[in-house]
Simulated scan of single mutants.
Amino acid sequence: MVSVPSPTPGEHSVTVTEVTEPPLRPPLPVKMVIAGGFGVGKTTTVGSISEIAPLTTEAAITEVAAGVDDLTHTPHKTTTTVAMDFGTITIDPTLKLYLFGTPGQDRFGFMWDDLVEGAVGALVIVDTRRLDDCYAAVDYFEHKGIPFTVAVNTFDGRMDHQLDEVRWALDVADPVPVIAFDARERGSVRDALLVVLELALARAES
C-alpha cells in the first residue's frame, strides 16, 4: 500500500492500493503408465514426448536374453528396459503428466504393481505383428480396474490389422478406446495420452 502526498497543503493524502496477481499454483501432478509387451515402443513413446531428458534403465540384450526374448520383429533392437522409463510433459498450466514406462518382459512383471500404484490410467501399446504379446498387459489393467487405452503403434507407417480387428482379437470392452499412433511423433503421442486422460476424467466423474 502506497501513500501519495496531496499537492495542496491541508488536503488529505491519497491512498493507492497496489493490485498484485495471485501467485500461480504449480500444475497438478498426474501419474500415467506406458505399458505393453517387449519391443512395442514404450521407451520411444516416453522419449518422444518428455520435456526433460527421459530417465531410462536400458541394458544391453545379451545372447542369453536374446534366447528368451523374441527379436523376430525387432532384429535391430540392442537394448531393453529392465526397470522403467520416466518422463514428464506439462499438458497446460494446471496439469503435468508423470510418465512411467513398464518393462515388457514377463520376467520383470513383478515390478508392475509398484509402477502403476497411484496411476490415473495407462496407455497399452500394441504391435499388430505380434498381438499375443499384448494379452498380458490388457488383462492386467482390466483386473486392476485402471482406465486404459489400447494404442496400436504404426511401425513403418502401417498396421497388419485394422482397429476393429485388434479390438476383437484382444477382446476389449467397447468403452475401452482402441486407437492408432506413431511412437516416434510427439504430436501423435500427445494425442494418445489425451485420450487416456479424458477416459480417466470421465471415470472419475461417473
Results as ranks from 00 to 15, higher is better:
T62D: 04
K77F: 11
I89G: 00
D92S: 05
H76D: 13
T74I: 15
D85I: 10
T62R: 06
D85N: 08
T62Y: 04
T72F: 10
G87E: 09
V68D: 05
G87R: 09
I89F: 02
V68F: 06
T80S: 14
G67H: 03
T78I: 14
T78E: 15
T78G: 13
I61D: 00
H76P: 03
H73L: 14
T90R: 12
V64I: 05
M84D: 04
P75E: 10
D70Q: 03
T79A: 11
M84F: 13
I61M: 00
V68M: 03
I89H: 07
P75G: 06
T62N: 08
D70P: 01
G67A: 09
I91Q: 02
H76E: 11
T88N: 05
T72V: 12
K77D: 07
T80Y: 14
T81Y: 11
V82S: 07
A83N: 12
L71K: 05
D92K: 04
T78C: 11
T80N: 11
A66L: 01
T72W: 05
T74L: 10
T79Y: 10
T72S: 11
P75D: 10
T81D: 15
M84C: 06
V64M: 02
G67Q: 07
T90G: 06
D92T: 01
G67Y: 01
D70T: 02
M84H: 08
T78P: 12
G67F: 02
F86E: 05
A65Q: 06
A60Q: 08
I91K: 03
I89E: 04
T90I: 01
H76A: 12
K77N: 08
V68R: 09
V68Q: 08
V82M: 12
D92W: 03
M84W: 04
D85V: 10
A60D: 06
T81Q: 12
G67D: 06
E63T: 01
I61N: 00
D85M: 08
T62G: 06
D69L: 08
A60E: 10
G87T: 13
P75Q: 07
K77G: 07
V68G: 01
T81M: 14
T80P: 09
G87P: 03
A66D: 01
H73K: 14
L71D: 04
A60T: 09
T81C: 13
H73W: 15
A60I: 03
T72H: 12
H73I: 12
P75A: 08
T88W: 02
T78R: 15
T88L: 11
T62H: 05
I61A: 00
V64A: 07
T62C: 05
E63Y: 05
H76I: 11
D92P: 04
D69V: 07
T62W: 04
T74S: 13
T90K: 08
D70G: 01
V82G: 04
T90L: 07
H73P: 10
M84P: 00
G67M: 01
I89A: 07
E63G: 11
T78S: 15
K77P: 06
G87I: 12
T78H: 15
V68Y: 05
V82K: 10
G67R: 04
L71Y: 09
D69F: 04
M84S: 10
V68S: 03
T81K: 13
I89D: 01
F86Y: 14
L71M: 15
A65H: 03
T90A: 06
T74F: 13
T62P: 02
V68A: 06
I61Y: 00
G87D: 08
A65G: 05
T81R: 13
K77R: 12
A83E: 15
T78Y: 13
F86V: 07
T74V: 15
